[in-house]
């Protein structure tokens, strides 16, 4: 359980352009992971790595640590393929 004092913290999201809470960042990434920028955005505010480590399963925490977003083109192709599959099923 992440302490409220962290979850309620707010900052401007560089991707969305508006204020969001830490709770939003840790809940809205792909596949139930935190946003891939969560460490980048929060490390200067508090010890975000320790908070995530305490609250995520080891496998998920390691995925965040090694987060390396795919090139945009690659992810667009993957999203298009996934969308086609969804619509065919």
């Amino acid at each position: 359980m992440v302490e409220k004092k962290y979850d309620l913290l707010q900052r401007r999201c560089p991707r969305l352009g508006g204020p969001i809470t830490f709770q939003y960042c840790r809940e809205t990434g792909e596949g139930g992971l935190p946003c891939w920028k969560v460490v980048d955005c929060w490390w200067e505010y508090f010890d975000v790595l320790s908070v995530l480590k305490e609250n995520l399963p080891a496998e998920k925490f390691n995925r965040i640590l090694t987060a390396s977003p795919k090139p945009k083109i690659t992810s667009l192709i993957e999203l298009a393929q996934a969308a086609k599959k969804r619509c065919e099923s």
């Binding site: 969305l16 809205t28 945009k72 667009l76 969804r86 619509c87």
Partner: peptide, 28 residues
């Protein structure tokens, strides 16, 4: 759900590629 950019992109791409007329495209 408050949504996320990832979900919004998925929706926009789906709306483009699912158009059977082939007359819709996505833009970034």
């Amino acid at each position: 759900s408050p949504g996320s950019l990832g979900i919004a992109i998925s929706e926009a791409i789906e709306a483009a590629v699912s158009d059977k007329t082939g007359k819709t495209r996505y833009s970034l």
